[in-house]
Design a protein around this nucleic acid. Structure first.
Length: 503
RNA sequence: GGCCCUAUCGUCUAACGGUCAGGACAGCGGCUUUUCAAGCCGUCAAUCGGGGUUCGAUUCCCCGUAGGGCCGCCA
């Protein structure tokens, strides 16, 4: 399961989320950078679920992390082996290990049991802050004798386990920030476990990073002040110190740490809105890293080849939705018709326009079965206009509806009088009627209709009402290609309907 | 309040002592065009302030200032 130290001189990174919410963009970026660095170095990328908080950890959140990591293409390369593949490591399954070290620290008097109440500690913190001191634990229970401790426990007094923080200067080298120094005297003895079965973050993380032979700890900048505490813990247990890299934070528009209050920023939400994994990866990579060239488009494998911490930013980066849209649109435009059709289908279903009946795509309103070719033609029409897949429904709904809704006013191009619009429609109807079903192509339609349109003051006089008649919209793809897909019968029906609206 | 981190166009960023401070997104304008896009072209827009060091600072140092992060029996 876990490789021994001798065979693991290679680079190992880890992503260690707590399953207390949906995987969000900030965490996804941390996972990505861990993955990129590991791959770049030919190393391993370990996934560890930090579910020591029994109340807040939920299996569905863990599932969300796993699903989205896979969806993004960030497959972890190691974990608990299960039926041929790797599940993630879970801290909840490693309690014995933590207990072993906890007992050891207690025995060596590097940790002690503390009976102070939360209220008591709260009041102390408040007071210290009010007089401008760093809030820290007084060390009150550190001097308790063995007998006193035993007595209190016997009396049923609640206790936690504190680690004796040695006051000193701790300096570590950060791959992104260089040398960082903290004075641990400013922090009191920290709580490392609620009890022998319930370790807390700062403690379990140190054990696991050592046990799993993690060589590089790549995490958000919000962990920078946890680092000296973890280093002290490493020293107390005789562990090797890993190399640190603290990533700049992903920020919201207001330049504060990206969180729920900036809206739903879960990966799942972006996935549901029709963003492509390659777009998200590309976008996230450029949030804090740059290639040093003017290239903007990177596949995951290209990122793996080029990634380095030298090109990593120190300052936080605002999550820019418009830029994400642009990148997503770019990737959408690269898709083949059949891939695009496959990608769009779930979104057409979601919009209530079609249904999948076994392998067939069926129009919900009419029950008509759609050929693969037709679906492809439809989505290709909107390929250039799509920023995200979820937009396809609204853009192309008229293909799947019996009747499109619009007002008579919409039919007229600019200031064109009603009569003129009606005449134009009449003229088109007449010409179109003469085209045979077998000739019904956008080229044919354009060839016969365009010359007539040219005779008008402006082509818009006829082309505009044609579009509105067919789509019910003021903005759409070209009317000839739409008419081709709609077919002769429906096209004529829609024209007739438009004329009725005008009279 | 204490500690730590950070600072180039609105946003993401390039320039590792010498550039007209470059690119991209967004914005704006144009071309194309029946519309909306896409595409192409153009345009607006930045080195937080003050001291040093240096022939020369966006770049190195110091001091301010501003922003952020952390100060949990969460992670």
């Amino acid at each position: 399961m876990i490789k021994s130290r001798s065979e693991s001189s290679r680079i190992r990174t880890r992503f260690a989320p707590s399953p207390t919410g949906l995987l969000h963009m900030g965490n996804a970026r941390t996972a990505l950078f861990n993955y990129l660095f590991a791959k770049n170095q030919g190393g391993d990328f370990v996934l560890r679920i930090e579910d020591t908080d029994k109340e807040r950890s939920k299996p569905e959140y863990e599932q969300d992390v796993l699903d989205n990591l896979r969806w993004l293409g960030l497959e972890w390369t190691e974990g608990v082996e299960k039926e041929g593949f790797y599940g993630p490591y879970r801290q909840s399954e490693r309690t014995e290990l933590y207990q072993k070290y906890l007992t050891k620290l207690l025995d060596e008097k590097k940790a002690y049991e503390c009976f102070c109440s939360e209220e008591e500690l709260d009041a102390q913190r408040q007071y210290q802050m009010s007089i401008g001191e760093a809030p820290r634990y007084s060390g009150k229970c550190s001097s308790l004798s063995k007998e006193e401790t035993a007595k209190k426990k016997k009396a049923g007094e609640k206790s936690v386990i504190r680690f004796v923080v040695i006051p000193k200067e701790v300096t570590f080298e950060d791959l992104i920030r260089g040398s960082v120094t903290f004075n641990t005297a400013l922090s009191g003895d920290i709580v490392i476990a609620k009890d022998l079965e319930t370790p807390l973050y700062n403690f379990s993380v140190v054990i696991d990073d050592s046990e799993m032979h993690i060589t590089h700890i790549i995490r958000g900048e919000d962990h920078i002040s946890n680092t000296p505490k973890q280093i002290l813990l490493q020293e107390a247990m005789g562990f090797e110190r890993p190399i640190y890299a603290h990533l700049p934070l992903v920020l919201g528009e207001d330049r504060t740490k990206l969180s729920k209050r900036h809206g739903d920023i879960s990966v799942t939400r972006f996935r549901d809105a029709g963003y492509l994994p390659e777009a998200l990866v590309n976008f996230l990579a450029l949030l804090g890293w740059n290639p040093g060239t003017e290239e903007e488009i990177f596949s995951l494998s290209a990122l793996c080849k080029q990634f380095s911490f030298e090109k990593t930013q120190k300052a936080g980066a605002v999550f820019n939705f418009k830029r994400l849209d642009w990148i997503n649109g770019f990737y959408l435009r690269q898709k083949s018709p059949s891939t695009l059709a496959e990608l769009c289908t779930p979104f057409l279903e979601q919009a209530g326009l079609v249904e999948k009946v076994s392998e067939d795509i069926v129009v919900k309103e009419t029950g008509e079965k759609l050929s693969k070719a037709i679906v492809e033609k439809i989505v290709v029409l909107y390929q250039d206009r799509l920023k995200k897949l979820s937009e396809i429904g609204e853009l192309a709904d008229f293909f799947f509806k019996k009747r499109v809704e619009y007002t008579a006013e919409m039919l007229s191009w600019k200031e064109t009088p009603k009569e003129e619009t009606k005449n134009a429609l009449n003229m088109f109807e007449e010409i179109i009627s003469g085209i045979s079903e077998s000739d019904w192509t956008k080229e044919k339609l354009e060839n016969v209709l365009m010359p007539e349109a040219e005779k008008q003051k402006s082509r818009g006089v006829v082309l505009w009402p044609l579009r509105v008649a067919l789509t019910g919209k003021e903005a759409s793809a070209g009317p000839f290609e739409i008419a081709e897909i709609l077919g002769k019968k429906r096209t004529l029906e829609y024209l007739k309907e438009a004329k009725e609206k005008l009279s």
